[in-house]
Structures are given as C-alpha cells and as structure tokens.
C-alpha cells in the first residue's frame, strides 16, 4: 500500500515517484485505448468505433444533463477525458500493483489524495474560470455568492472548500479503501498457508468485482459532480 513513498526533488519541487509512474501509466493506457478505438473511422460505425461513440455519448449525456444547451458543448471533451482517466485509474490498481522493497511503484493513481485533489482542483479552477469568462468578475461574484439570497454568502464561501474536499476525498476514499481491503485479503491469503489461500481467494475475487463496480460508479460520480460544480458557476442562478 503506502509503506514507503519514494520522493524525488526536481527543481526544488517534491515529486512522489509512485504517483508519477502510476499517472503516466494511466495516461498512456487512456491514450492508447482511445487511439486504438478511433482508427478507421467510418460513416457507418462498426465494432470499436461503436464502443468509442458509446463512451462519447455517455459522457456527453452527463454534460448535457447538467449544463444544457450550447454552453455545455465545450465541456464534452473535458468530461470525456476526465471520465476515461478516472475510470482507468480506478481499475488499474485492481489489476496490477507493483511493490518493490516496500516501495509502491505502480497502483491506482486515484488511491492517492494528492492525485484526486489535483483533479478536483483542476475542475474547480475551470469552473471559476468559466464563471468569470461568462459573467465578468463582478457578475461572477454576484452570481456565485450573492444569488439567490445574499445572506447565504458565508455558506457559499464555505461550500467552495467543502466542494473541493468532498469531490477529491470521495474518489480517494473509495478507491483507497478498496485497495486496502484487497491488500488485507491478500495478506490473509498469505498468513497460514494453503487453507487461508483457499478461503481468501473467493473473497478476493468478490471484492475485486465489487471494486470494479465502485471504480466505475466513482468515475461517473466524479464527472457528474464536476459538471454540477461547473454548471453552478456558468449558469445564471
């Protein structure tokens, strides 16, 4: 799990090498997957193109149900990439974890709070940016914090932080917990030889299946909430 973290300082900035490697792997998998699916496009879609278009339709549906109209169209690509990245990251740790000498080199990137916080930060920055772009600084402030009633201002301000925290820690918590339990079941399997292995194997399988489900749901939830937060900033209240 997180026995040791291998930190590299580059230009005085600390990098957690586990996250960097896992993230690179997730990005590479997403890109290769999409690149592979998008070859040989045709007017009449077949096979892999259908898969890709189904995913695109799915994420477009998430976007358009939260940000209706032309406004939402520019978030389609963002939602698509975000969804795929989180989905792949969630599943990655279930399939493979590389731990060498107590140091984890490859796991689910989303089981690290820094990663989910980065993603949440990115989403909320985008939300504020597009809010300002749409209404101007004054309009953005009024629309975000003083509408519909101005005495909610403290709660609105607090909400900005809770949004960020809940968005990032929901994802992190789910994936991290899944991996923790997987590791625990794994250590049970190794504890007393063959008997515990036989007992732990179906448990592990069941939990892995459940984690696949949770990973998918969490990817969907993260993207949906991202779009909700963005829509709160870019839609008139």
């Amino acid at each position: 799990m997180n026995e040791e973290t291998y930190v590299v300082k580059f230009l005085g900035i600390p990098f957690n090498i586990t996250n960097v490697i896992s993230g690179l792997a997730a990005f590479a998998i997403v890109f290769c997957l999409v690149y592979f699916l998008s070859r040989n496009l045709a007017m009449k879609p077949t096979g892999k193109q259908n898969v890709l278009e189904w995913i695109i339709d799915f994420t477009n549906g998430i976007v358009s149900s939260n940000i209706p109209g032309e406004q939402g169209k520019r978030f389609n690509l963002f939602a698509f990439v975000l969804f795929l990245f989180i989905f792949v990251s969630n599943q990655m740790g279930l399939a493979i974890q590389i731990i060498v000498g107590g140091t984890t080199y490859l796991k689910s990137p989303t089981s690290d709070p820094m990663v989910t916080m980065s993603l949440a930060l990115m989403v909320l920055l985008l939300a504020h940016f597009f809010g300002v772009q749409r209404f101007g600084v004054k309009g953005y402030l009024v629309n975000s914090y003083l509408r519909p009633v101005s005495f909610m201002l403290p709660i609105e301000l607090l909400e900005e932080f809770t949004n960020f925290l809940t968005l990032s820690f929901r994802l992190y918590g789910n994936i991290f917990a899944g991996e923790v339990l997987l590791t625990l079941v794994g250590s049970v399997a190794k504890s007393h030889g063959l008997i515990t292995t036989v007992v732990a194997l179906p448990l592990e399988m069941v939990w892995q299946g459940f984690s696949v489900f949770i990973g998918s749901i969490q990817a969907y939830v993260f993207v949906t909430l991202s779009m909700v937060y963005i829509s709160q900033k870019v839609e008139k209240e």
Binding site: V7, V8, F10, I13, P14, F15, N16, N19, V20, G23, L24, F27, V81, F85, P109, D112, M114, V115, M117, S118, L119, L121, M122
Partner: peptide, 12 residues
C-alpha cells in the same frame, strides 16, 4: 507533493 499536482495538471 506539489510536483504531483503540477505533473497531473500538465499531463492531463
């Protein structure tokens, strides 16, 4: 790990 944040932003 600020680096992670930057790394993820840039690579995303």
């Amino acid at each position: 790990y600020i680096g992670d944040l930057l790394f993820y932003l840039v690579s995303f």
